[in-house]
Computed example of a mutant assay.
Amino acid sequence: MLTPTRELAIQVAEAFKTYASAMKGFHVLPIYGGQGMDAQLRQLRRGVQVVVGTPGRVMDHLRRKTLKLDDLDTIVLDEADEMLRMGFIEDVEWILEQTPPQRQVALFSATMPAPIRRVADNYLSAPKIVKIVSKTSTVERIEQSFWMVSGLHKLDALTRILEVEDFDGIIMFVRTKALTVELAEKLEARGYSASAINGDMSQALRERTIEQLKKKHIDILVATDVAA
């Protein structure tokens, strides 16, 4: 299974362990950059049923021949449009070319831009398309707006918005767990009462942090989608 980020690889691997908890001898291994190769190699030698990895690290193992796909049954591309956005699509296609022809390919994507459609056309055999139509909508009293800001100026733009807007409490969503801590610390340094919340925290601690926002003990909660 290919995922765009380390955090998602870990999250998916944990979900596999939960779902397969009653299956004896089932092993899943997340592999991603930034983690030592030795630990991954030991687990691969012992044998695993599922590998969840980022494209770069999966390519490393394939080139080293420490990950073999001869008996691969299924390959899953999770958040394919995000892998495209992050520049991984050529890596994904290279990995797909290393897989046996009889494997099944499942592709999950929130959007279907042309490069993702090309991957589907080239690597999926007679695919069945499943579309999920959301029945939820934004609460009518919520006003929505957006600003296009370059990465270098995001913090300054955010600070300016906080200076001119009245608020009782704010939840800010960021992409990764590391960013929740980083942004909360930067906001604290600028005089705002902010806390991070992410999947590395225990459920009890997450609930206490959310309660702090509700009771106005903090002004800003910086979260991954775990807060949703």
Results as ranks from 00 to 15, higher is better:
T3P: 05
T3L: 06
I10M: 14
Q11C: 13
K17L: 13
T18Q: 14
A20D: 04
S21C: 13
M23S: 09
K24L: 14
H27A: 14
P30Y: 03
Y32E: 04
Y32A: 01
G34D: 09
Q35M: 10
A39S: 14
A39L: 14
L41Y: 12
G53V: 02
G56K: 11
R57S: 05
R57H: 08
V58T: 06
V58M: 10
H61T: 02
K68G: 15
K68L: 15
D70F: 11
L72R: 07
L77E: 11
D78M: 10
E79W: 01
D81K: 09
D81E: 10
E82P: 03
G87L: 00
I89M: 02
T99S: 10
P100Q: 08
V105N: 09
A106W: 14
S109K: 05
S109V: 02
T111W: 06
M112E: 01
A114P: 05
P115H: 05
I116K: 00
R118A: 00
N122I: 00
S125W: 13
A126M: 10
P127I: 03
K128D: 04
I129A: 08
K131W: 08
I132N: 06
S137K: 15
S137R: 15
E140V: 15
R141Y: 12
S145P: 07
W147D: 13
V149G: 08
D156E: 15
D156K: 15
D156I: 06
D156N: 13
E163T: 03
F167C: 01
D168E: 06
I171A: 00
V174N: 07
V181M: 04
V181Y: 09
E185Q: 12
G191S: 07
S193T: 14
S193H: 14
S195D: 04
N198C: 11
N198K: 04
G199T: 00
G199Q: 03
D200F: 05
D200C: 08
S202L: 11
S202G: 13
S202A: 13
L205M: 15
L205A: 15
T209S: 05
T209K: 12
I210A: 04
I210V: 14
L213W: 02
K215A: 10
K216Q: 13
I220V: 01
V222M: 07
D225I: 01
V226D: 04
A227I: 08
A228H: 10
